[in-house]
């Protein structure tokens, strides 16, 4: 299944590549290496068989560079790690969620008041910077690597989990001094978006397979709770997503 999807998406299919390179003669496949490259036709699915998992087309980058993604993916996992309760942020796709959010209106602060003049304000007056969220992430990620390098001579995602925690802690407490952004404000944003990526509807690319909800016993998008609202017992329910509503 995966194989076939991949092939369709490629601008030049393997078959046409092979054709052009003259390895396919008269429609017959020459044996050996070339034959195996073409792959075998998949047998049609038999009734009762479990369908093969489909590709998650959502797991590609809209904004981050691969390097940035690795840093964020590793950081999210430390904020919300995999444990005996279930998957962590990495398996739930939180970093993809953040990437997709930064690519859109939220990343551009499209619905925020971004007109000048800009003055530093009191804490109680809220964010007064001119940088957009995507720019704050660019800087924050770079600084996480810089700080990791200064401590351990390695990039953030190459550190041990304990070392990564030390770096995150240094950002959280403003022990890292940055000039363009506030390290703690960046950390707060990273933490908040990690939780969003873990618990938002899977439609946004995180909370994969609703496993974030399942761990927390949140039943997702249910149309009614009239049947349980009064009862004393806790109601355990299989979650439903917005996709279930759309296609239900």
């Amino acid at each position: 299944m995966l194989e076939q999807h991949d092939r369709k998406e490629q601008p030049v299919s393997r078959r046409s590549f092979l054709k052009n390179s003259g390895l396919v003669l008269g429609g017959l496949v020459v044996g050996g290496v070339a034959g195996s490259l073409l792959g075998k036709q998949q047998a049609p699915q038999q009734p009762g068989e479990t369908p093969a998992p489909t590709a998650d087309f959502n797991q590609a980058l809209m904004y981050f560079s691969p390097e940035q993604f690795k840093v964020v993916d590793a950081a999210c996992e430390r904020i919300y790690p995999e444990d005996e309760l279930g998957p962590g942020a990495k398996a739930l796709g939180a970093a993809y969620f953040i990437d997709h959010q930064l690519a859109g209106e939220w990343g551009f602060n499209a619905r925020d008041y971004m007109q000048g003049p800009f003055y530093p304000g009191e804490v109680t007056q809220g964010y007064q910077g001119r940088l957009k969220r995507r720019e704050i992430f660019d800087i924050g990620i770079q600084e996480m690597n810089n700080y990791s390098n200064s401590l351990h001579n390695a990039r953030f995602y190459e550190l041990t989990p304990e070392q990564q925690d030390t770096v995150l802690k240094a950002f959280e407490t403003d022990e890292v001094k940055l000039t363009t952004i506030s390290a703690s404000a960046f950390f707060a944003m990273l933490r908040a978006t990690t939780l969003e990526g873990v618990y938002a509807d899977p439609l946004y690319g995180g909370n994969k397979n609703m496993d974030g909800w399942r761990m927390k016993k949140f039943p997702g998008n249910q149309m009614a709770y009239t049947q349980i609202i009064e009862q004393d017992e806790f109601a355990k329910m299989e979650p439903l997503s917005l996709r279930d509503h759309q296609h239900g």
């Binding site: 602060n109 008041y113 003055y119 809220g126 964010y127």
Partner: peptide, 10 residues
């Protein structure tokens, strides 16, 4: 104190 805009919701 100089009044500043509420740039995002709170």
């Amino acid at each position: 104190v100089r009044a500043l805009p509420m740039r995002s919701y709170g």
